[in-house]
Computed example of a mutant assay.
Amino acid sequence: MISAPLPLLAKEASLGKPSRLYTEPFKDAAVIATLSATSTVKVLERKGGWSRIQHQQSEGWIRTLDLRFGKSAEGSVVADTFGLATGRAGSGNVVATTGIRGLDEEDLKSANFSAEQISLAESYRIDASVAESAAARAGLQSTTVEYFEDITNATPAARRHDR
């Protein structure tokens, strides 16, 4: 998890869309409020893909991807740092991004079985002959890739040899 101290964060941000303010940094936490897309917030802390923010008298957690750190962050440490790093200092075009990969522990804990979603995923499946025909029309050639041998229980010498 990424956690950054307050001085490294933009003091203010705006929302790019209506967003829910949660009591905790989890999708299944209680919702405190729904903020409008025109809301301006103060970022207090970041943790993974979540930011703890203050909006008027409310404080809670919001998905960091819902925040926009543009002109409202000008003059902050983040804006100045990004400006220097990107060569956009003073241009007003500073952009901050957040990358989040995969599923975290909370996503897995809150996952529920959905027969409807399984059916939807299966509806995208095509037969091998259809895939081969499409690949041939695109000029692609078939390649066989051998599976790697499982060396988790191999001796250290065998592991070095296989690399």
Rank of each mutant, 00 (worst) to 15 (best):
T143A: 13
V94R: 12
L103H: 14
G139Y: 12
S3K: 08
A33F: 08
A33I: 03
I126E: 04
T64S: 10
Y22F: 08
G75C: 10
T152C: 11
L65H: 11
R101H: 15
S39W: 01
V43W: 02
G16W: 06
E74L: 10
K17V: 04
G48A: 04
V43G: 00
A13P: 02
F26T: 05
G83H: 00
A121P: 08
L6F: 03
G87F: 02
G16C: 06
S51D: 15
H55M: 13
D107C: 03
L84Y: 13
Y147Q: 03
Q57C: 14
Q56A: 14
A131W: 04
E106W: 07
W50E: 12
K17N: 14
L103A: 15
S3E: 15
V95E: 14
S119H: 05
A89V: 11
R101A: 13
S39L: 00
V95M: 02
L8R: 07
Y124C: 05
S114Q: 10
R68Q: 11
G83C: 01
S110A: 07
S58M: 04
L15R: 02
D104L: 08
F26W: 15
D28W: 05
G70C: 10
F82M: 12
E74A: 06
F113A: 15
D127N: 02
N153Q: 11
I118W: 11
L9S: 01
R101D: 09
E105I: 10
A29G: 06
P18F: 01
N112T: 06
P7T: 14
A85T: 03
L35H: 00
E74M: 09
K17W: 05
I151A: 05
P156L: 04
N112Y: 15
F69M: 07
A134C: 03
S72I: 06
K11E: 15
T86D: 08
V31G: 02
I53N: 13
A96T: 13
G60P: 11
M1P: 03
A138C: 06
Y124V: 04
Q54F: 15
A33R: 12
T38W: 00
A79S: 13
P7F: 09
F26L: 10
R101M: 04
T97N: 06
I62L: 08
A128P: 00
P18E: 10
R68H: 15
S119E: 09
A13V: 08
E45F: 14
W61H: 05
S91C: 11
K11D: 12
E132T: 01
K42W: 02
S14M: 02
G87N: 03
A157Y: 10
S133L: 07
T23M: 10
E122G: 11
L9R: 08
S36A: 02
S142T: 07
S129C: 01
E146W: 01
A158W: 08
A111E: 09
E59Q: 09
E106K: 07
R88T: 14
S110I: 04
E132Q: 13
R160N: 15
G139C: 05
G92I: 11
E149M: 05
S76V: 05
I32P: 00
S119A: 09
L35Y: 00
A29K: 04
A121H: 11
A131G: 02
R159C: 08
R63G: 06
L67D: 10
N93Y: 04
T81Y: 06
A30P: 02
T34Q: 09
E146N: 13
R46K: 07
K47C: 12
A157D: 04
T64G: 14
T152N: 09
